[in-house]
Amino acid sequence: MIRFILSKLLYLVPTFIGITIIAFGFVRILPGDPVLLMAGERGISPERHAELSAQLGFDRPIWEQYFDFLGRLFQGDLGNSLVTKKPVLDEFLTLFPATVELGLVAILLATLIGVPVGVLAAIKRGSWFDQVSMTAALVGFSMPIFWWGLLLIIFFSGVLGWTPVSGRISLLYFFPDVTGFMLIDSLLSGQKGAFASALSHLILPSVVLATIPLAVIARQTRSAMLEVMGEDYVRSARAKGMSQARVVGVHALRNAMIPVITTIGLQIGVLMAGAILTESIFSWPGIGKWMIDSIARRDYPVVQSGLLLIAGLVMVVNLLVDLTYGLINPRIRHK
């Protein structure tokens, strides 16, 4: 098992270096000059521009800037934001829990609904439930997130007035950050109604963010279950006299979950992309919105380091998924 983990870790090294190049290069390919954007509408004299560029190191050759970035990265220095002057890592850590909270609730929602729906659709193949759920999944999968988010806001917040439009909690409540997770902090604060407010703010964004993963997970679970239900070992379990619930829930599902877990892991990456849109729609103060704002300001250090942190996160999650895969599939573990 340890060798399995080490070999997986080794794979991460070239991937990580690749990401540093992309993260560094990507933001510099974008047209726009961060120094000019910092100066704003007042403009800036060519001398001052040159002076600032030199100060920020933008006048040096690009490869030199890259190795400088890499060097500082290995010392744990992700740089400071050009706009706020604060360390990128501090900003990231402040905003990160909001995104994690949203992402976790979304992936939980997607898994807890997607897997049972997929299983049921498979064992009731061809039934109305199968047809309706799979059509809904196809619609969900094809839905543009921003449009879907706006529709939900118009209906649930605008017409029905059930949920708030944006933010993480009502402005009426104020309490210190303990965990950074609003649901937990609001509970800890003991303030009446705080938790309900946090929850009501979370519902729409997490539904929007969960939509595509939910559709993908439901469809993947269904097809994996259909494949597994035809296997000899499922017939053996039946021949042993095991109940339908045990045949499906233990013998078939355990095997069907192998590809589904990979799918869920891959959805984490999709989720990060979705979070950028969702957070923008709902003004959710997480790293998605932070990245969008920083790209608009050409805040090079924030964009390149933020991208790196997000990519690193996705890599860690994928590693965990690989390890889970090994746990759930003994044939991989014993290779």
């Binding site: 070992y233 017939r235 379990a237 021949a239 355990r254 095997n255 192998i258």
Partner: peptide, 16 residues
């Protein structure tokens, strides 16, 4: 009444 099958490896669940 019990039954055994032709493909013994495939007849056993690979995950358990």
């Amino acid at each position: 009444i019990t039954m055994i099958f032709q493909e013994p490896i495939a007849s056993l669940n690979p995950s358990f």
